[in-house]
């Protein structure tokens, strides 16, 4: 009896988790003209793909307007590509560079090691908005506004968390293997590339995936330095789309189609790497 109750609670939790996504897709498949009459059933009465077509820039402006668009040009195909590029650049380079640094802090001996590491870790305590303001000024001064370079700049080289996380991992690697590599005549680079990195595939994927997710969710920074059409990310484009849409009658079907597109890639990621993602929480959350 108690067990049935407990399972029911979990079922309700799952429904509450999934339903908003269901409603998002359902609205995206509804013709804008039906929004006032057809807004209670679980499925649309006249399902359509026109909302996806028009926000992907596949229709003429007149068609888009007729289907409920505000007339402003939106091209979510481009924004999706931009977001993917943004995530891959940041996750790839940041993971690589932070692995190098993490390894140096864990294994190499050099004067000032603990001091430098301590300073890096202190930066974990500083809220991002504090460095965000001067970084905005810096990117402006460097003439990198509305460029991908300016957008990825603050995070593509490092985050203190990634350095910290990977150092912790390298500390836990058994030293014996590395010592064997030294006897084989390897220098620090050789050991790092041939021994330490191959042994750390798990943590590297974990930190890489976590970084992809964070980069995918990024909003404030790309909003400030990447508002321009050419390099606009999906999240920024969603915000702009909402603002362009008339306040009295937002283009909900278009907005929900765009929202669906912003969810799709992470859904694919979850389907492909669900186990890794779920396990990564045990890693990053608790240590």
């Amino acid at each position: 009896m108690k067990r049935i109750l407990a399972w029911t609670v979990l079922a309700v939790v799952v429904i509450l988790t999934i339903f908003p996504f269901w409603w998002m897709v359902r609205t995206a498949l509804t013709p804008a003209a039906d929004l006032y009459t057809d807004n209670a059933g679980l499925l649309p009465q006249h399902p359509t793909l026109i909302n996806f077509a028009r926000i992907l820039g596949l229709t003429s402006e007149a068609e888009a307007r007729a289907a409920g668009g505000s007339g402003a040009r939106v091209d979510f195909a481009r924004y999706l590509v931009n977001s993917v590029v943004y995530c891959v650049l940041i996750a790839g380079f940041q993971t690589m560079f932070c692995a190098m640094a993490g390894y140096a802090f864990a294994r190499l001996r050099f004067p000032g090691r603990d001091l430098v590491f301590g300073i890096l870790i202190a930066a974990l305590m500083v809220p991002p908005i504090f460095t965000l303001l001067p970084n905005f000024v810096l990117v402006k001064e460097l003439g990198l506004m509305n460029t991908m370079a300016g957008m990825v700049a603050p995070t593509v080289l490092m985050t203190p968390f990634a350095v910290f996380f990977l150092r912790q991992f390298f500390l836990s690697l058994p030293r014996e293997v590395e010592e064997a590599a030294i006897l084989d005549g390897n220098g620090p680079w050789g050991i790092f590339w041939r021994v330490a990195l191959p042994m750390s595939r798990g943590p590297l994927i974990t930190i890489g995936l976590t970084t992809v997710v964070w980069a995918w969710k990024d909003y404030l920074w790309p909003l400030l330095v990447g508002r321009g059409e050419e390099n606009r990310l999906v999240t920024v484009a969603l915000g702009v789309f909402l603002q362009q849409s008339p306040n009295t009658q937002p283009d909900w079907t278009g907005l929900m189609a765009a929202s669906t597109l912003s969810v799709l890639p992470v859904l694919v990621l979850l389907l492909l790497m669900g186990r890794r993602l779920v396990q990564s929480l045990n890693f990053t959350g608790n240590k």
């Binding site: 999934i18 999240t235 990621l269």
Partner: peptide, 14 residues
């Protein structure tokens, strides 16, 4: 667990 994680994976804007 994957289902419970889904809302966290989605941008806050969405």
């Amino acid at each position: 667990r994957a289902t419970l994680l889904l809302p966290w994976l989605v941008p806050n804007v969405t």
